[in-house]
């Protein structure tokens, strides 16, 4: 067991605690906080993988902007504890266990064939903002423009939705 492995296991545990908190906590604000924890831990994992630019954008975009928006909505709508489902056969434990186990099983089937892969000898510029910016402006210039259009449409749509009368 090396230090890296121990660090990974600790981070993975934290990430799972965060993810579990999102799914199982009854109050939306606590769920949001657990999700923030999960995002921060994932950012640390990205740093571990060498992708520093993406780690920092993870913190900035997800933890800094998206989750604050979630909290804003939760607070504005005064959401409190939620009640369990009304129909008996959709009770959380039953459907959760079955569905979760199924998804995990499918993924586990997929993990087996690639388990032999090792970290590649990547460029020293891997994960730096320069490398990502270069790639974004050359190979991915077209998808990048499309993504910016998508964001613009998102802005317009949210403004229209937020108007009092549509």
């Amino acid at each position: 067991m090396t230090t890296n492995q121990i660090a990974f296991l600790a981070l993975a545990l934290l990430a799972l605690i965060g993810g579990g908190g999102v799914v199982f906590s009854q109050r939306p604000v606590r769920a949001a906080m657990c999700l923030v924890l999960n995002f921060l831990v994932l950012a640390a994992l990205y740093f571990m993988l060498g992708a520093q630019m993406l780690g920092i954008s993870q913190i900035m975009v997800y933890a800094g902007a998206i989750m604050v928006l979630f909290l804003f909505i939760v607070m504005m709508l005064r959401m409190d504890r939620e009640e369990p489902h009304k129909v008996w056969w959709t009770s959380a434990p039953v459907i959760g266990t079955v569905f979760g186990a199924l998804v995990l099983f499918i993924f586990a089937l997929g993990i087996r064939p690639v388990a032999e892969m090792k970290p590649g000898a990547v460029d020293p510029k891997f994960g730096t903002p320069q490398a990502i910016g270069m790639e974004m402006m050359t190979t991915y210039a077209w998808p990048f423009e499309v993504a910016s259009m998508l964001l613009l449409v998102g802005i317009v749509a949210s403004i229209i939705l937020a108007k009092r009368r549509i």
Partner: peptide
């Protein structure tokens, strides 16, 4: 090179799979 040399790939993939399964359960439940 890098810091992740000695962490096997399947650990990362398993973590991703577990988080995905958790999220999927949450969406349903």
């Amino acid at each position: 090179t890098g810091i992740v040399n000695d962490v096997p790939i399947e650990w990362f993939l398993l973590l991703g799979a577990m988080l995905f399964a958790l999220g999927a359960v949450g969406v349903v439940v």
